[in-house]
Every structure is written in structure tokens, then in C-alpha cells.
Design a protein around this nucleic acid. Sequence first.
DNA 1: CGAGTTTGACCCGCGC
DNA 2: GCGCGGGTCAAACTCG
Length: 285
Amino acid sequence: MEQTCVDTSLNLNVIPSRHIDLAAEVLVEELHRLSSENKRLTETLNKVCESYDALQRHLSHLKDKDIEKEGTPLHKRKVESEINCMNMFGISSFTECSTITEDETFKRPRNNNNNLPKVSKVLVRTEASDTSLYVRDGYQWRKYGQKVTRDNPFPRAYFKCSCAPSCPVKKKVQKSLEDQTILVATYEGEHNHDNDQAEISLSSTSHGEKHAGLVPISSAMVSTTNPTVTLDLVQSTIIDNAQKSSIQKLLIQQMATSLTRDPNFTAALATAISGRILEHTNSME
DNA sequence: CGAGTTTGACCCGCGC
DNA sequence: GCGCGGGTCAAACTCG
């Protein structure tokens, strides 16, 4: 697959002159720091793309296998489930679907088995040290329980959707046993209400299907209060080529917006610009 | 003071 | 029938 990563590196050819005051130097330092942060994020993004490649190869392999062997009904369901998941999520490496089979649904459904709620899994990459079990997905959740299960020493948190009082959607979040940096969010049911945050992003993708846990890229978080640029990779859904440019534009816009919102940045920028103008006018004289 | 979180108790399905 | 374990409840607590 062609690399879909967005080059977020900044052009930092900022030449400090004797006219640039202390604030400008701090700004340059900050820009360099952000640049290295961007490099790091770009590398992460590359890894995501590679994972996506592998996932897609695996899927096509499974499909081929299925066609060859005319697999069992269960196998068919598994592959169909994978394809459905892919379609639902627009395929993502960090936001990936597991194969859901009947026996993986909740063991104690209160409702009839005939109308099983939709169950889907989403994997979310977090910091290993991050012990919180919160997954940003655009919906509001109310935690109603936490439990340590037998098969996993990490606690499992139980959430109900609190966007609408009658919304039946539930979600379970637990750290992955294999990889502590991954949170496994299991969604049950479908939202019976709209979500403004989710709507915005979904409208920018070709996959209109709404899904709990799918947060559009437009809501990717770029922190302005904290100097660390935080890209929520859960939301970095890799889409097709036609959407690459719009995503890139979106990222640039978000970056610009968040930077201009920062009063420290605008002040430092104004100082740097005025310094350059002064330098220019001095050389003219 | 209200909304959200924590956490121990309880419920209930399942396997033996 | 009993114990285990996952899921839910609800009182106490925290926080804005």
C-alpha cells in the first residue's frame, strides 16, 4: 500500500539574528522541540501504516482461503465480521476490529439471544504508564463499575452512554494482556441519538455508518494549554487516497488554529516578526 | 448541591 | 447444589 502518512514536520529554517530578543529565542527552542515531537509522531504514523499493510494482507489472505476451502459457516461469519468491521471503521491500524463470534458476545445478556446487540471491539494505543481507562470516542460515558477479571490482572471498567438517558449502549474498557499500551474497548449496542462531535468527523469520510468508538479525525486533539502536541491516534483513521489531501489540510488547519489560539505563541511570533521588520528597515537605511 | 466516580455487595449464568 | 466469576447496583465519596 502506498504510504498514507501525513508529513507534519515543520520548516524550522529560522535564523536567529542579533535582533531577535530572548522571547524569540525561546520560541525557536520551542519550535525545535515541536519539530522533534513531530518527527517522533511521523515515525509512529509510519509504523501505523505498516501495521495497516499487514492487517490488509492478512484480510485478503483470509478471504482467499475462505473462497478456496468454502469454509465452515462459522468461518464465513468470522470473515464477514472482519469485513464489516473494516467497513465500519474505514480501516485503521490503531482502531482495529477483532473478530467477533457468537461465543465472544457477553456471557450474560439480559435481553433475548434472538436480538443480540451489536458488539464490536476497538483497540486504542495509550501510554504504558497511563492507568486511566478512558477512551475518547466523541460520546459521553458514565462509569458504573470496575472489576478485576480472572484472565487479566488489569481492571475492567464498565461504562454506559450518558449522552441520552435512554441510550442502551455500553462499553467495557480493559488493558490488553499482551500489550499494556493497548486499551481494549468493547462496545455493545447502538446509539439511539445523534452525536454532534461524531457527526462532524463522519461527514468528512466516505463511510457514513455511525459507530460507537469511531471518532472522526476532525476531532483529533491538539492541546494548546500543554506544549506537547497530542495527536489522538485512535482517531487517525487511515482512509483512501482521495481523502489524504483533505486530511493533510485538516491537520495543518488544526495545527495553525491551536498555535494561534495560544497567546504565548502569538506574542512570541509578534515579537519575532517585529524584530525581523526592524532588522530589515535598519539594513535599508 | 448535583453530577460523576469509586467500590463493596449482590445477582445470576455456567460448569462441575 | 455449590462455587466461581462476570456484570450490575447503589451508597459513599469527590469535585467543580
